[in-house]
């Protein structure tokens, strides 16, 4: 999978590139509008991650250019402005999804996976992880060929874990993924513990290996060993 990351902030760019490469992507970078424009005109990408605030132009114009070229690349808009209008405009222009800065890297992974799945395989794509088989379009999960019944939220959590194999997911990142935003409603993130426990129990009942690891005080990890 080849990605183009358009981000002007050098330090953030490096971090994102590191994280994405760890996720197995081939990542090219553009530090400003001019570079990005040149690259999207010259090369084909599977997905383009665009920061909307660039020093020499508006990221929305890149989205416009991609769409007018009929590019097959998925577009994920990253916005530092919490202007709702930017997001809406980005989606209207044909962006597939948006992330508001700052975001958890695991959340970026999850969104990117979903986006690529929709784009590349028209949803007809399955995820295989050890003894697990997931058909995202049908929201179907099979453990060693046996169907596994999960609640919507449990399924969501499993998909989130599958998008981040081998990555440590902090409790906060998991909580925010589940609750949709900064979890002001809870004093602690302990509430995800029982939720995670239920998912593990259901997996084990079907005889799945216990690959969801708890890192005490930190969070969880989908073990790839």
């Amino acid at each position: 999978m080849k990605l183009l990351l358009v981000e002007d902030e050098a330090s953030l760019r490096r971090t994102l590139v590191d994280a994405l490469r760890q996720g197995g992507y081939v990542v090219e970078v553009a530090a400003d509008f001019a570079q990005a424009y040149e690259k999207i005109k010259l090369y084909q990408y599977d997905a383009v991650l665009v920061d909307l605030t660039l020093p020499d132009g508006d990221g929305l114009d890149l989205v416009r250019a991609l769409k007018s070229d009929g590019s097959a690349a998925g577009v994920l808009v990253i916005t530092a402005r919490d202007g709702l209008d930017d997001r809406v405009q980005g989606l209207d222009l044909g962006a597939d999804d948006y992330l508001v800065k700052p975001f958890h890297l695991s959340e970026l992974n999850a969104r990117l996976r979903a986006l690529l799945r929709r784009r590349q395989f028209g949803g007809q794509h399955h995820i295989v992880f050890r003894d697990l088989l997931v058909w995202p379009e049908q929201k179907e999960v099979l453990v060693k060929g046996e169907p596994l019944i999960l609640t919507r939220k449990e399924y969501d959590l499993l998909l989130y874990l599958l998008a981040n194999p081998g990555r440590v997911l902090t409790k906060e990142a998991v909580a925010e993924h589940l609750c949709g935003d900064q979890v002001d409603a809870a004093d602690s993130f302990d509430f995800i513990y029982s939720h995670m426990k239920n998912l593990r129990k259901k997996l084990q009942e079907k005889g799945a290996d216990d690959y969801i690891r708890t890192l005490y005080g930190v969070g969880y990890k989908l073990s790839t060993d």
Binding site: T15, K101, L105, S106, V168, T170
Partner: peptide, 17 residues
């Protein structure tokens, strides 16, 4: 303000990895 905070958050999350 947000950019350095975003960098800080991303870097710390990478450090955990």
């Amino acid at each position: 303000t947000r950019t350095p905070l975003a960098i800080l958050q991303a870097r710390l999350e990478q450090l955990v990895q």
